[in-house]
Amino acid sequence: MFGAFGAHALKKLLSVDQLKSFETGVKYQMYHAMVLLLIGFNFNMDVPFQEYMVYCFVIGTFLFSFSIYALVISAAKGRKLRFLGPVTPLGGLLLVCGWALLLYSFLRNLV
């Protein structure tokens, strides 16, 4: 939905670089939504670190993607929300933590 919004409604308002940034947010949101679906079907959430993994992915995706959306749209309207600048890397860090916990889960099952 956000991809279609960016491709059609924002195409005339945003520069090429802004559209690429918006598209990055959409891609990361989509990838992590798929990961969350796979986790939901394959994990019982019976171990606390699995819950932390899900929290990292959900909160990280929200902070990463939606801060990019807000930064791009606000910049297009001439009022860049600079306070959101540090939010994007924080979301990325949470996504990295989620991936690390997922890797730990796989390695734990191998041993």
Results as ranks from 00 to 15, higher is better:
F43H: 00
H32G: 01
G40C: 15
F41K: 13
L37D: 02
T24R: 02
T24M: 10
S21L: 05
L37W: 10
K27H: 01
I39A: 15
E23S: 03
M34G: 13
N44S: 06
F49C: 07
G40P: 07
M30Y: 05
K27I: 15
M45W: 03
N44R: 14
F41M: 08
T24Q: 09
Y28K: 00
I39S: 12
A33Q: 06
F22G: 03
F22R: 09
E23W: 00
V47R: 11
G40F: 14
F22P: 01
F49G: 07
H32L: 07
I39D: 01
V35K: 13
L38I: 07
M53E: 00
L38S: 14
L38K: 08
I39G: 09
M45H: 12
S21I: 08
N42Y: 12
N42K: 10
Y52V: 11
Y28G: 02
K27R: 09
Q50R: 13
K27M: 12
M34D: 06
L37T: 13
Y28L: 14
M34S: 02
V35M: 15
H32E: 03
M53I: 04
M45P: 00
T24I: 07
I39K: 02
A33M: 03
F41I: 13
G25D: 12
K20I: 02
K27D: 00
M53H: 05
F22T: 04
N42R: 08
M34C: 13
V35F: 08
Q50W: 01
N42I: 02
L36A: 14
D46N: 14
F43P: 00
V26P: 00
V47H: 08
N42V: 09
V26C: 00
Q50K: 08
F49D: 09
N42W: 03
M30K: 02
N44W: 06
F49E: 13
Y28F: 14
Y31Q: 03
G25K: 00
V47P: 00
Y31S: 07
L38D: 09
P48M: 11
Q29I: 00
P48Q: 05
E51N: 14
L37Y: 09
Q29M: 04
T24Y: 03
L38T: 04
D46A: 09
D46Q: 15
F43I: 06
N44V: 03
S21T: 11
Q50C: 04
G25P: 01
L36S: 13
V26I: 07
M30N: 11
M30R: 09
Q50N: 04
Q29V: 06
G25H: 02
H32V: 04
Y31K: 12
T24A: 03
V26R: 05
F41D: 02
V26E: 00
M30F: 11
M45I: 11
G25A: 08
A33F: 14
F49I: 05
N42P: 07
L38Q: 08
N42Q: 03
N44G: 08
M30L: 15
E51V: 12
M45T: 06
K27A: 12
L37C: 10
K27L: 05
D46R: 02
G40A: 02
K20S: 02
V35A: 14
G25E: 03
H32Y: 08
V47N: 10
A33Y: 04
N44L: 15
M45V: 10
L36D: 06
F41C: 07
V47M: 10
N42M: 05
Q29K: 10
L36P: 00
Y52H: 03
